[in-house]
Design a protein around this nucleic acid. Structure first.
Lengths: 242, 242
DNA sequence: TGAAGTTGTCTATGATACTAGACAACTTGT
DNA sequence: ACAAGTTGTCTAGTATCATAGACAACTTCA
């Protein structure tokens, strides 16, 4: 590896970063793979370790790599292509990308319907709800944190069922509902808060995509209202009604 | 014009230099044309004049532009394509490039043949010679300084004739020689000395191409021996016997 | 001859880049 | 529990980058 001399007008760290990025693009460093250690990279390019760190920081800033203290720096997986269709199933979308979908219950609590939630679910304000907080992963990468609200009357014990099945699809099927589809979808983006940052293993200050959606049964009856927070750098929504 | 913010890893002056170079390549600034003043360029890019000067210095270093104090900065002409053939005429080569050939007598003196010169000219060591020092230009750009040696017996008053004709071709014709051709050609490169640097309007430390050649008449009889020093950045020799 | 405009050079200041070394915090494997 | 290897963070010194202002030296044109 030979870099330009200093004074070329292109900072050393930038040359290193560009070189590594090329390596990732060329498949020299496949997604998920561990990069050489910072010390080793520094030796390869014959620069100071701090210069390498500056280069890696630039790549991490763009989400191309992710550093793990004590372990190494890893090439981030490609963004998960997440099509937004009437039939949107997390497990199917992740599986289609050749990755293993996982679900993890964070907590299940009881709640009462706010006016807004009541409207979305077709219930009365104050109706009893079950609130399920769940983390969804592709392989071992957290993709989104999802808060779901279901009618406590229609889905009694929903928390326990989700804990066992770890899947909203299976939960709904458990209550005898043959199929469901997406009712409404709204998307915004905000900066992650500390709680979700920890759950998503996301740095503070990074953007998340907030998806408010409802699933309805074939008759159009609302089943569940959800607010999902996606790590923006790990997904790419595809809207297919262009 | 919008440049990247600082911290991008690419120095500002480099971005300005690249932009101007693109402008030259795109023909936005034709060869020989004057660039906008340094102050104006600084305003265009919203950058300090010193930064512009750094950019122009980088371009000048590569011979793409040439600064003239008090006047402006000009786009350097493309390198003069200089074919090395049996029939090599400065005026014809320059004219073929659409530029006007000029000659300028620096000085004409008498000399005696060294052993080497005598051998090249087919004379005896110590034979009387006329030494002509001349500057050759394309339009107003100095191309080379040429020292020519001719037999004083065969070409009496050669200095005065050259001063009048400003052309070696015409000088030879003046003595009744129908045609001539290149006998031998040797090429080396060295760093310019102060004298030639001033004559060629060339910065100290820049390389020059030194061409030792002889011209001979159709019978092979040596007519003139020459040592020409070309500003390397202004010419490009083409050897056509590949 | 003089004014206006140009490039050349100098000093000064602050920000950024690069190197160097040391140690903390953490992960992994034995 | 420990050692080795990794990333994270800190201090420090030097060089380059960028800005700012001033003036000299030179060219051009009226």
């Amino acid at each position: 590896m030979t870099l330009q001399e200093t004074g070329s007008g292109v900072a050393l760290w930038r040359q290193v970063a560009d070189s590594i990025e090329r390596g990732i693009a060329d498949g020299k460093f496949p997604a998920g793979e561990r990069l050489p250690g910072e010390t080793e990279i520094a030796e390869i390019y014959r620069v100071n370790r701090h210069t390498v760190r500056r280069a890696l920081a630039a790549l991490a800033e763009r989400g191309l790599v992710r550093a793990e203290r004590g372990s190494g720096t890893y090439v981030e997986a490609q963004r998960l292509a997440y099509p937004l269709r009437a039939r949107t199933r997390f497990s199917e979308i992740v599986g289609a990308g050749g990755r293993e979908p996982r679900g993890q219950l964070i907590e299940a609590t009881e709640a009462v319907a706010s006016r807004e939630l009541a409207r979305e679910l077709g219930l009365k304000t104050g109706a009893p709800l079950i609130r399920i907080e769940a983390l969804r992963l592709a392989d071992r990468t957290p993709i989104c944190v999802s808060t779901s609200w279901l009618s406590a009357e229609r889905f009694p014990d929903a928390g326990r069922v989700f804990a066992a099945t770890r899947s909203m699809t299976k939960l709904i099927k458990h209550y005898g509902i043959r199929d469901y589809r997406r009712g409404s979808t709204r998307i915004t983006a905000v900066i992650v808060d500390a709680t979700d940052a920890a759950r998503l293993d996301l740095a503070l200050g990074r953007p998340i995509l907030v998806v408010d959606a409802t699933d309805v049964d074939p008759d159009g009856t609302p089943l569940v209202a959800m607010r999902s927070r996606f790590a923006a750098e790990r997904v790419e929504f595809l809207v297919e009604n262009a």
